[in-house]
Measured scan of single mutants.
Amino acid sequence: MQIFVKTLTGKTITLEVEPSDTIENVKAKIQDKEGIPPDQQRLIFAGKQLEDGRTLSDYNIQKESTSHLVLR
């Protein structure tokens, strides 16, 4: 499924993911596309910070959901 990640600069990154993917996996995909190390990434969805060990389905992130990327 596709999800979108919006950066603070207003850029939207499109990612191909599975509901069973962990947040860690998603951060690795963002690193592949954008070159941002996962330890600098914070992903926010529905006002919550997403934890590495959880999956997209844990957070009820469905296709075409948009989460926000904040850099630390």
Rank of each mutant, 00 (worst) to 15 (best):
M1K: 03
M1Q: 03
Q2L: 14
Q2A: 08
Q2M: 13
Q2S: 10
I3H: 03
I3W: 02
I3M: 05
I3E: 01
I3C: 02
I3L: 09
F4P: 03
F4A: 06
F4K: 10
F4Q: 08
F4E: 06
F4W: 07
V5T: 01
V5I: 14
V5H: 01
V5N: 00
V5S: 00
K6G: 04
K6F: 08
K6Q: 10
K6S: 08
K6I: 14
K6Y: 10
K6R: 12
T7W: 10
T7P: 03
T7N: 06
L8H: 14
L8E: 14
L8M: 13
L8Y: 14
L8T: 12
L8S: 14
L8F: 13
T9F: 12
G10T: 03
G10I: 02
G10C: 09
G10V: 02
G10N: 06
G10R: 04
K11L: 09
K11T: 08
K11F: 08
T12E: 06
T12P: 03
T12Y: 11
T12D: 04
T12S: 07
T12M: 13
I13S: 01
I13R: 01
I13N: 00
I13P: 00
I13T: 02
T14H: 07
T14K: 09
L15D: 00
L15W: 01
L15I: 10
L15R: 00
E16P: 04
E16Q: 12
E16A: 09
V17I: 04
E18K: 14
E18C: 13
E18Q: 13
E18Y: 14
P19V: 07
P19W: 08
S20P: 02
S20M: 11
S20R: 08
S20E: 10
S20L: 09
D21H: 05
D21S: 08
D21N: 06
D21V: 04
D21K: 01
D21L: 05
D21G: 03
D21Q: 04
T22F: 08
T22V: 04
T22M: 06
T22H: 04
I23R: 00
I23L: 04
I23S: 01
I23D: 00
I23W: 02
I23H: 01
E24G: 12
E24H: 10
E24A: 15
E24N: 07
E24Y: 15
E24D: 07
E24S: 13
N25D: 12
N25F: 12
N25T: 14
N25S: 15
N25R: 14
V26T: 03
V26D: 00
V26G: 00
K27F: 03
K27H: 02
K27M: 07
K27P: 00
A28K: 15
A28G: 09
A28N: 11
A28P: 00
A28S: 11
K29Q: 09
K29G: 03
K29Y: 07
K29W: 04
K29M: 13
I30L: 07
I30M: 03
I30A: 01
I30V: 05
I30S: 00
I30H: 00
Q31R: 13
Q31N: 09
Q31A: 14
Q31G: 07
Q31H: 14
Q31V: 04
Q31Y: 15
D32W: 09
D32P: 02
D32H: 11
D32N: 10
D32M: 14
D32L: 14
D32C: 10
K33V: 12
K33F: 08
K33W: 06
K33D: 03
K33Y: 08
E34R: 05
E34S: 13
E34Y: 07
E34V: 15
E34I: 15
G35Y: 03
G35W: 03
G35T: 03
G35F: 04
G35R: 05
G35C: 06
I36S: 03
P37F: 05
P37S: 08
P37H: 11
P37V: 05
P37A: 08
P37D: 06
P38L: 13
P38Q: 12
P38W: 11
D39M: 09
D39T: 10
D39G: 11
D39Q: 11
D39S: 13
D39F: 11
Q40M: 11
Q40V: 09
Q40F: 08
Q40Y: 08
Q40I: 10
Q41F: 14
Q41T: 05
Q41N: 03
Q41P: 01
Q41G: 03
Q41V: 09
R42Q: 13
R42V: 15
L43Q: 00
L43T: 00
L43M: 03
L43S: 00
L43K: 00
L43N: 00
L43H: 01
L43C: 02
L43P: 00
I44G: 03
I44F: 15
I44P: 00
I44L: 12
I44A: 05
I44H: 08
F45H: 10
F45P: 00
F45E: 01
F45A: 03
F45T: 02
A46T: 05
A46W: 09
A46R: 14
A46L: 13
A46D: 13
G47H: 05
G47P: 01
G47A: 04
G47R: 04
K48T: 12
K48H: 11
K48E: 12
K48Q: 14
K48W: 07
K48G: 05
Q49W: 14
Q49H: 11
Q49Y: 13
L50E: 01
L50M: 12
L50S: 01
E51Q: 10
E51I: 08
E51Y: 07
D52A: 07
D52W: 03
D52H: 06
D52M: 05
D52Y: 05
G53R: 09
G53A: 10
G53F: 11
R54Y: 13
R54G: 05
R54E: 05
R54W: 10
R54K: 13
R54D: 05
R54V: 05
R54T: 06
T55R: 11
T55Y: 05
T55Q: 06
T55F: 06
L56S: 00
L56K: 00
S57E: 11
S57N: 09
S57G: 09
S57K: 12
S57T: 08
D58C: 03
D58A: 05
D58P: 00
D58M: 05
D58Q: 07
D58R: 02
D58E: 10
D58W: 11
D58K: 02
Y59K: 01
Y59Q: 03
Y59A: 02
Y59G: 01
Y59H: 03
Y59M: 03
N60M: 07
N60C: 07
N60V: 04
N60R: 07
N60A: 08
N60K: 08
I61Q: 01
I61L: 06
I61W: 04
I61R: 01
I61K: 01
I61G: 01
Q62D: 14
Q62T: 15
Q62K: 12
K63Q: 12
K63D: 12
K63T: 11
E64Y: 14
E64H: 13
E64G: 15
S65M: 11
S65T: 12
S65G: 10
S65Y: 08
S65C: 08
S65N: 10
T66G: 10
T66A: 09
T66M: 11
T66S: 10
T66Y: 09
S67E: 12
S67G: 15
H68D: 07
H68N: 08
H68K: 07
H68C: 13
L69Y: 02
L69D: 01
L69K: 01
L69F: 05
L69W: 03
L69S: 02
L69M: 07
V70G: 04
V70Y: 13
V70K: 06
V70H: 15
V70S: 06
V70W: 12
L71S: 06
L71D: 05
L71E: 06
L71W: 06
R72L: 15
R72M: 15
R72W: 15
R72P: 09
R72C: 14
R72Q: 14
